[in-house]
């Protein structure tokens, strides 16, 4: 299964809307495989959900996201896990192990019941 994360150096981009790099990782048998980076600009993507779907992405983990993008992505087949912060490797390892990302990596001020990733 392909998981994408909007990244800024080693950490998750604080704001999806202004993120510029997408890390795409294949998760097979609880292991990360084929890690790739793609330059990315949500403002330029005319059909964001389709673009992500074409890349085969099933899950998108990101930081704060505005309603317009959130609706676009969730309208497709991609599972969105927003308002996540922290080190990318730690977040992905935790995700692979099946540990809930919330509340462990939830951004400050975001209540668990609101996001329900």
């Amino acid at each position: 299964m392909k998981v994408a994360v909007t990244v800024w150096d080693e950490r998750i981009s604080p704001v999806f809307d202004s993120a510029r790099t997408l890390l795409i990782v294949d998760i097979k048998n609880d292991k990360m495989k084929n890690i790739s980076y793609k330059s990315f600009n949500p403002e330029l993507e005319a059909s964001l959900a389709e673009e992500l779907s074409l890349l085969g992405i099933k899950v998108l983990i990101c930081g704060a996201i505005s309603q317009a993008y959130s609706t676009l992505i969730e309208a497709g087949t991609i599972q969105l896990i927003p308002f996540i912060s922290g080190n990318v490797n730690e977040v992905l390892e935790s995700y692979i192990k099946g540990n809930p990302l919330v509340p462990a990596f939830l951004m400050p001020g975001c209540r668990e019941e609101e996001e329900n990733p």
């Binding site: 800024w8 981009s13 604080p14 704001v15 809307d17 202004s18 993120a19 510029r20 930081g63 704060a64 912060s85 951004m107 400050p108 001020g109």
Partner: peptide, 13 residues
């Protein structure tokens, strides 16, 4: 960290 609280489009670059 301020970027996780303030969450502005400027934070990154």
């Amino acid at each position: 960290h301020c970027w996780n609280v303030f969450r502005s489009n400027m934070c990154q670059d």
